[in-house]
């Protein structure tokens, strides 16, 4: 996949353009010349946008912020793959050396009923915030905290918890899933808390409420294809979904309210 010769690239881009949520969109084609293989994918789009503005055409709107792969703002389908061909990578950390001269690149927004397109490649992911609001927290007020070392946490549990908490909330799991399911996102939060003593008091309520919200937002169900895991830039594993399922089963059978 890597372009070894460091040759500058000519590219054919086919990009989804849509001016607002309630208007129909379409693919439009663009040509770009002289792209350095050391550029990031978003820098390539920056160049396209400069050209578009100069030509009087509206630039392509895309979400981005930190451009170092941690904020989870950027994300697009690149040739049918969430965040493009590189693994454990966000779109901002994808570099053009993964493409070849003359390539056609199809760029689409995340597609899910729960993620309506706002403009071009920008989607509304506030459904994720609402899933967290349903129970993705520990109910502790500022000032109520006991001493940090009051609870001993085995290193293995802490590390396992951090594996899940590494989720950046970008939505690639939803985008890559054939069912547009947000189960990996939801599971990451459930799994983060359930491996810590701090998460224990609310574990039953949390998993039921978060799944309920997940479904209400219109995300699909998990059919265990593991595409989410492969697309996840933070390497969150589907084993967290299994943990979520266990938690749900337990909660379903034991919840008292």
């Amino acid at each position: 996949m890597t372009n070894p010769a460091k040759k500058r690239l000519s590219l054919h881009l086919r990009i989804w353009r849509q001016s607002r949520t309630d208007e129909a969109g379409e693919f439009r084609d663009y040509q770009l010349q002289d792209i350095s293989p050391d550029m990031s994918f978003l820098e390539m789009l920056d160049i396209l946008n400069q050209q578009l503005i100069e030509q009087g055409e509206a630039p392509v709107a895309f979400d981005h912020d930190c451009r170092e792969g941690i904020c989870g703002t950027c994300g697009m389908m690149i040739n049918g793959q969430a965040h493009g061909p590189d693994h454990e990578t966000t779109t901002c950390q994808l570099h053009m050396r993964h493409f070849n001269d003359g390539d056609t690149i199809i760029i689409e927004p995340w597609r899910a009923r729960a993620f309506p397109v706002l403009r071009d490649l920008i989607v509304n992911r506030s459904a994720f915030d609402r899933i967290i609001q349903a129970g993705g927290y520990v109910s502790i007020k500022t000032g109520q905290a006991p001493e940090g070392n009051a609870n001993l946490i085995p290193q293995q549990h802490q590390e396992g918890s951090l594996d899940a908490a590494a989720c950046i909330g970008c939505g690639a799991c939803v985008a890559a899933c054939k069912n547009a399911s947000a189960m990996l996102f939801t599971a990451a939060k459930v799994s983060h808390f359930v491996q810590l003593p701090q998460g224990a008091p609310e574990r039953t309520k949390r998993v039921l409420a978060m799944i309920n919200q997940h479904d209400e937002e219109g995300f699909g169900a998990c059919t265990n294809t593991s595409e989410c895991e492969a697309a996840c830039p933070a390497a969150v594993s589907v084993s967290h979904i299994a943990r979520l399922n266990r938690e749900y089963l337990k909660a379903m059978l034991t919840a008292t309210d």
Binding site: Y137, P146, G148, I153, L196
Partner: peptide
């Protein structure tokens, strides 16, 4: 203390 109580998985 506050962050630990919120479930921040600090290194152990």
């Amino acid at each position: 203390d506050q962050c630990v109580a919120q479930g921040v998985p600090f290194a152990r």
